[in-house]
């Protein structure tokens, strides 16, 4: 990064935040602070929903995932369009009709106070614990490759997002998200075009995709019914639909975005915007990674993309093992490159036999490359146990720093920070409003002025922001903590969705039955997690279905002695 890059980074981040704070100054009413001024158009909502979901890790890691395992990950998003239609038809009209601030408030309307607190509590536990990761994950990658101090990176980006989220509330969040996502899209499109220009002359786009296909990077869909496969169309459609239903339908950080719409029409169109653009966006990010893979067939990549870790270990090691492996990697890459060039030449000459021969040769050479990479990873693990960082996270940023011109480097690093801040702001805004509406106003102080609750919201938002910064600073000491929080996040979702689906569709079930059924279903999910190894997407399906089935059974038993709570009108 040079001076121009830093000017772009600090200039755009501060300007966007300052503009949002200035534009939303003087908000005194609770509805305006928590739900915005109620004038959001479908485009603002659509971009806001997208920006809240897409964190920095989406943009840093997804190309790395494309580089390593190809396009298959796109299938995980196949359930999203269907889920967003269900939310648009079922969830949204009910939330708007009851004029709720939070999704959990609806559970209070439909069931009772304890079920509302269970929903809000699970959200606060899950998002509150995970609050630091949104900041920590990009900070660790960017500080490592830039040589910045990790703690300073976390504190600066954390305080900036807390400042404008606390000052401007919901409107400031959606206003900043609109400009931040503009920066993100500009950065990604610029990186894509530079990458296309940097491919060797004479190599057509079709050649590039053929090479990627030869290394099994183009397997975008897998219709097999094998449950052991990591990504298939069926896990994507069914598991992905349940995950998207619970995330977009019951996670306050998303619900708050589309409740700010000027009308139900604007909210619906905002959700449909995401239903249409979610899959192409993920496909584009994965394709970027696949093309980086093709680019590195002709340019020697680092043997280990996190070069900071590699250099530190190579200089410390006395046996020179890592440097010897680096030499082996250079030779293996040269052999692979020769085969790939022969393959492209044969393809252009129309010589099918030579093409097949060179393609097989390239595959063999690639196996050798993977072997050297695996040995390098093992040597690094041995030298510094506990550094289980995913090297794929460093692929895209390495490409950017090595092959993009100054100015564009600044734009891309700004895009990563914009993505981190935009999703963090959505989360903090939701944590603050859920704490205010579902806990403070519901349990602690029921009758107070709007101004009082706005101040309370600001205090709670700042509190969660500081928790996030503290957690991110602490996370550096315990990588396993991050793993644990990520797992916790993915195994609560199913049961929360179960609560809402019972509320919408099982009108005979009351609060007591659903409350205890949710706890039993969560215990079942924990037990399965401890004893089985299935894709995390299936925990959501199991948790949700178990919650619904248990509710019906328990209501049947309770129904003999008492009446169920009436459904909301």
């Amino acid at each position: 990064m040079n001076t121009l890059d830093y000017v772009i980074l600090f200039g755009s981040m501060l300007a966007i935040a300052a503009y949002a704070v200035w534009n939303t100054r003087g908000r005194r009413d609770l509805s305006g602070y928590l739900k915005g001024s109620g004038q959001a158009t479908w485009l603002t909502i659509g971009l806001s929903v997208m920006a809240t979901q897409a964190s920095a890790i989406t943009f840093l890691s997804t190309p790395g995932q494309g580089y390593e395992s190809g396009l298959g990950f796109v299938q995980n998003y196949f359930g999203a369009p269907i889920a967003l239609i269900v939310i648009s038809v079922v969830f949204l009209p009910i939330y708007r009709r009851l004029k709720v601030y939070t999704a959990y408030e609806y559970l209070g309307h439909r069931f009772d106070s304890k079920t509302r607190l269970l929903g809000a509590g699970l959200f606060l536990l899950q998002r509150g614990l995970g609050a630091g990761i949104t900041i920590y994950a990009p900070a660790i990658v960017l500080s490592t490759v830039m040589g910045w101090r990790l703690d300073a990176t976390i504190v600066c980006s954390g305080l900036l997002v807390v400042a404008y989220t606390v000052a401007g509330g919901c409107d400031a969040v959606s206003l900043t998200q609109k400009y931040q996502i503009g920066v993100i899209f500009a950065g990604m499109v610029a990186a894509f075009f530079v990458l296309l220009v940097r491919l060797p002359p004479g190599l057509t786009f079709s050649d590039a995709l053929t090479i990627a296909g030869g290394f099994h990077k183009m397997e975008a869909v897998d219709f097999s019914l094998n449950m052991d496969r990591r990504y298939t169309v069926w896990t994507g459609v069914l598991g992905g639909m349940f995950l998207a239903l619970s995330y977009f339908g019951t996670d306050q950080s998303q619900v708050q975005r589309y409740l700010s719409g000027a009308s139900i029409r604007e909210s619906r169109l905002g959700l449909m915007f995401n239903a249409v653009f979610k899959i192409p966006m993920q496909f584009f990010m994965l394709l970027l990674g696949v093309l980086i893979f093709v680019f590195y067939q002709f340019e020697r990549p680092p043997v280990y993309f996190n070069r900071t870790v590699w250099k530190a270990q190579a200089e410390q090691a006395t046996d020179g093992g890592l440097k010897a492996l680096d030499g082996e990697f250079t030779a293996a890459h040269a052999a692979e490159r020769a085969q790939v060039e022969a393959w492209v030449a044969a393809r252009h000459a129309g010589n099918r036999q030579a093409e097949a021969q060179a393609r097989d040769g390239a595959s063999l050479a690639h196996e050798r490359i993977e072997e050297v990479r695996a040995k390098t990873r093992a040597a690094l693990d041995l030298a510094s146990p506990g550094t289980k960082a995913n090297d794929a996270d460093y692929v895209f940023i390495t490409f950017i720093l090595d092959h993009l011109p100054h100015g564009l480097i600044g734009l891309l690093v700004t895009a990563f920070f914009a993505a981190a801040l935009s999703s963090k702001a959505g989360e903090l805004n939701a944590l603050g409003s859920t704490t205010t509406v579902d806990v403070y106003r519901h349990l602690v102080r029921r009758e107070a002025s709007d101004g009082h609750y706005v101040v309370a919201s600001k205090v709670f938002t700042a509190f969660w922001g500081l928790v996030a910064i503290g957690f991110a600073l602490f996370a550096n000491l315990a990588e396993n903590l991050i793993q644990a929080v990520n797992i916790l996040g993915s195994i609560f979702y199913g049961v929360v969705l179960g609560l809402f689906l019972v509320a919408f569709f099982l009108k005979r079930v009351g609060g007591t039955a659903v409350f205890w059924s949710a706890l039993a279903a969560q215990a079942l999910v924990f037990a399965l997690y401890a004893t089985q190894s299935i894709s995390y997407l299936w925990y959501n399906v199991i948790g949700c279905v178990a919650c619904m089935v248990f509710s019906v059974i328990l209501q049947g038993i309770l129904g003999l002695g008492g009446r169920p709570t009436p459904a909301a009108p």
Binding site: L71, V74, F78, P81, I82, L84, I85, S88, V89, L209, T210, A212, G213, H216, M218, E219, A220, V221, V233, R268, L269, M272, A275, V276, I279, P280, F283
Partner: peptide
């Protein structure tokens, strides 16, 4: 009508799955 919007969204989704299937078959 909203039914038309949802139908359109499903059609676009189906088109994407078809395109991705075609890509997988063309470049395998």
């Amino acid at each position: 009508k909203w039914g038309g919007v949802y139908g359109l969204v499903i059609a676009i989704f189906a088109a994407w799955v078809s395109l991705l299937t075609l890509l997988s078959l063309l470049f395998r």
